Simulated scan of single mutants.
Amino acid sequence: MTEIEQLRDWINTNPFIWSIVKFMMILIVVLFCIQLLRRYLKKKITNTVIRYKAQKGIEILGYALLIILAIIYFSGTIKDFTIVIGLFTAGLAFTLQELILSVAGSVYIFLVKVYKPGDRIEINGIKGDVIDVDSIYTTMMEIGQWVSSDNYSGRIVKLSNAFVFKGPIYNYSQDFPFIWDEFNLPIRYGSDIDLAKSMIIKIASEVLSEYTTNSKAEWKSVVNKYYIEDAQIDPTLAISLTDNWIQFNLRYIVDFKKRRFIKDLLNDKIRMEIENTNGKIILASTTIELIKIPELKVNLGEDKKGQ
C-alpha cells in the first residue's frame, strides 16, 4: 500500500479530525489575509485616527468572518462539533478565566464606551493616556511615578481588560475634557487684601478665558446627560486666616492636558504683578520669632584662681 493510499484510508476512518485540519488551514489563510490588509491600510492611510480605526475595523470583521466560517463549516457534523465545543468550553472556564474576562472586558469597553484611545484614565492605580485597546489588553502611556505632575514617565503599560470589572476607572476626558485644579498663595498680614483679591481674579480670568468659555458649553451637556448639579465654571478665590499668613486658594477649570502649563503660567503672572505693587502685597513665608534668649553666665575670675 502506497503512502497516498494510507493517507486516504486514514482520512476515511477519521473524517472529523480531517475536518479540523482543513478548518485550521482555512483559519491560517484568513488570518494571513487580515494581516496583509492591515499592513496595506497602514501604508496607504496617513491620518493616524482614521488608520487606527480602519485597522481595528478589519480586525473585528476578520474575527466575525472566522466565527461565521466555523458555524458554516461544522454544520454538517454538528453533533461531534458540539461535543468538542462543550469539552473545550469546560476547560476554558477552569483554566482561562482571566483570558475570558479580558475578552469580555474588551466587549464591555467597546459597547459601553468606558474609554477609548486618546482618553486619559486611571485604572488599578496606574494613570496614563490610552494609546490602544485590543481584544485582551489596554495599552497606556504612563503618567507620573518618579516624574512630577502630569508628565509622561516614558513607560508603556499593558493592562488586562478584565480590570474594568474589578475596580473604579477614572476618566479625565470622557464627556467633559476639563478638570478643576487649584493652588494656594500665602499673603502676609498687613498687605492690601482687596487689591490682591482683585488682581488674582483678573489674571486668572484673562489666562483661563478660553477654557472657561469652552467648558461652559461642555458642562451644559454633562448636566443634561447626568443627574448632577450645576457647578461654578469661572475662577473662584477663597481666603482663610492662619497663624502665619492669609491663605488665598485659587480654584479654576483647565484642559486636562494643560494642567501643569497653566499652573506655571498663573504663578508666574501673579508673581510679576505682586512685584509691581511696590510692597502693597507681600508673599508670606514661615517665620520664627524668638521671645527670649536664655541667659549665659560666665565667671572668668574663678577659672583663673583654679589655674
Rank of each mutant, 00 (worst) to 15 (best):
Y108E: 06
Y108R: 04
Y108F: 07
Y108V: 13
I109C: 01
I109K: 00
I109Q: 01
F110E: 06
L111Y: 07
L111Q: 08
L111I: 09
V114F: 02
V114R: 11
Y115A: 06
Y115D: 04
Y115I: 03
Y115R: 05
P117D: 03
P117F: 01
P117L: 02
D119N: 13
E122K: 13
I123H: 01
N124R: 09
N124S: 12
N124Y: 09
G125S: 03
G125R: 04
G125I: 07
G125E: 01
G125W: 10
G125Q: 04
I126Y: 10
K127E: 13
K127H: 06
G128F: 03
G128R: 00
D129G: 10
D129S: 06
V130I: 13
V130H: 02
I131L: 10
I131S: 10
I131W: 02
I131V: 15
D132I: 02
V133G: 09
V133R: 14
V133T: 09
D134M: 03
D134K: 02
S135A: 11
S135R: 14
I136K: 14
I136L: 13
Y137S: 07
Y137R: 13
T138N: 10
T138H: 09
T138I: 05
T139I: 14
T139Y: 08
M140K: 09
I143Y: 08
G144M: 04
G144C: 05
Q145E: 15
Q145D: 15
